[in-house]
Write a protein that binds this DNA or RNA. Structure first.
Lengths: 257, 257
DNA sequence: CCCAATTTGTTCGTATGTATC
DNA sequence: AGATACATACGAACAAATTGG
């Protein structure tokens, strides 16, 4: 288990926080692994010489971070738990909630990471995996007829990229690409960037993704990288236009600032 | 404030978790911002009809995620708080604690992101910022004489990259590069990859960084990208050699597997 | 410097819920 | 069904920290 969350500051830590840190360290020292049971509440109360409530708050802290899980009943208790990807995504998402990431910010990351992902996967995927990618593409083979369909297709298209990321054995790359796609989905949906169908974006997306799957199949790493690089640039450009148009349409008073 | 951390599952949530989610939503609905005070414990007890301990556990959950902070005394209370970068780093670090990221994983990310960062900063830095970079470089102008110095220089060199990242106005890029560098520092230190001074790595690092600062100064974006790309490739190669050598030295029995 | 008010922090005893045998 | 072993929740009292008079 990783080191304590807040070791640097010299400020007085609350007792539950101290206990949480102590438990963390305790788990590390003993090399306890996911699935292993921590001592029961009663034992911890004795071990730390603190009241039940304090111990419980400490356990809640670890639980909120996704590091432990507790179950009631006989054989129950507090168990070491591997932080799930969903939990990690949510926790990191909190950090960027106030940050106001722009379309440009997100695409700068996508333009760097996704071509690299494609290049590293070329020639490494089996028929089953390639078929799965084509199956996702099929879900938006027809252009959207209204805003609702447009939104669904947009999400599905991001799923294509998430699925591709899933196929990498680099867990960090996998996480970062999926996280960025998630944030992009949040931004575009919350800012209604998909209010009107954008036929050009749809058509170019389909074309790029088909070419990409072909390149992945025949193991052409350089082509895969290049295709995804162009795909990202194109999508970036169209998204910014969309954003600009929307800004102009709904917030004309911004001109006078 | 971002949506509840665990909305998807249909499993029964603990009451503190429910309360925490409710508070989150409450904050979002009212558009409360960092610094704003939440209702007092007493009010929440009345509002949710629950015991004090339950409310406190809920607040602890939010506090563990870095979303609120509480202070005692008059004028005290629970306050909405912007998740700090340190907290976000620690929380995401938890996710990768069990994941066993390899040197290759980390450098695949660095090779994709750092050249992009360099390119985007070329010509945008003022004299003060360029001087700051050179100051960090000066801290390892002389080759290390022992393992301890080698470790220090290694950390300082990662600080160079963190400082560079700090100069980007893309908060996501900034965070990802610093996070990756942090994880790399953890891995190399914990696995003693810097036990013996590596003169070649030191010399090439210095050379690349000098050239980089020059390219940044004269605004040559393409050159900056290319230099950092080569720098990362070189460092990656040398780190892997170091890793291989160390594996061979300390774990010879791995051959028989 | 102390005192009083306010708000979170901690304790303890008890009771309830839940899963296993 | 009942006993057991756990976490979970409640409530009342007390402690500690901070602010202002």
């Amino acid at each position: 288990m990783p080191p304590a969350t807040t070791p640097s500051r010299t400020e007085r830590l609350s007792r539950p926080q101290q206990v949480a840190d102590a438990i963390k360290q305790w788990v590390m020292e003993n090399g306890w692994q996911p699935g292993d049971r921590l001592p029961s509440e009663t034992e911890m109360i004795a071990r730390f010489g603190m009241a039940k409530g304090t111990i419980r708050e400490a356990v809640r802290i670890l639980e909120a971070q996704g590091l432990v899980k507790s179950r009631t009943g006989p054989g129950g208790g507090v168990f070491v738990h591997q932080v799930s990807e969903e939990r990690a995504t949510a926790l990191l998402g909190n950090y960027f909630y106030f940050a106001q990431l722009s379309i440009d910010d997100l695409y700068q990351i996508r333009e760097a990471l996704e071509p690299e992902l494609a290049a590293s996967l070329a020639g490494k995927l089996d028929d089953h995996q390639l078929a799965a990618l084509e199956a996702v593409m099929a879900s938006y083979a027809e252009p959207a007829r209204d805003a609702e369909e447009e939104r669904e297709q947009h999400i599905a298209s991001l799923r294509f990229h998430a699925l591709l990321a899933e196929m990498s054995d680099n867990r960090l790359l996998r996480f970062l690409i999926k996280f960025t796609a998630n944030m992009l989905a949040d931004v575009t949906v919350s800012r209604r960037l998909y209010a009107q169908p954008n036929r050009e974006l749809w058509a170019s997306g389909i074309a790029y993704q088909s070419r990409l799957v072909a390149a992945l199949r025949c193991g052409d790493s350089a082509a895969a990288r290049q295709i995804l690089r162009e795909h990202m640039r194109g999508a970036h450009r169209l998204m910014c236009l969309q954003e600009a148009e929307l800004t102009q349409r709904f917030l004309p008073e911004i001109d006078i600032l």
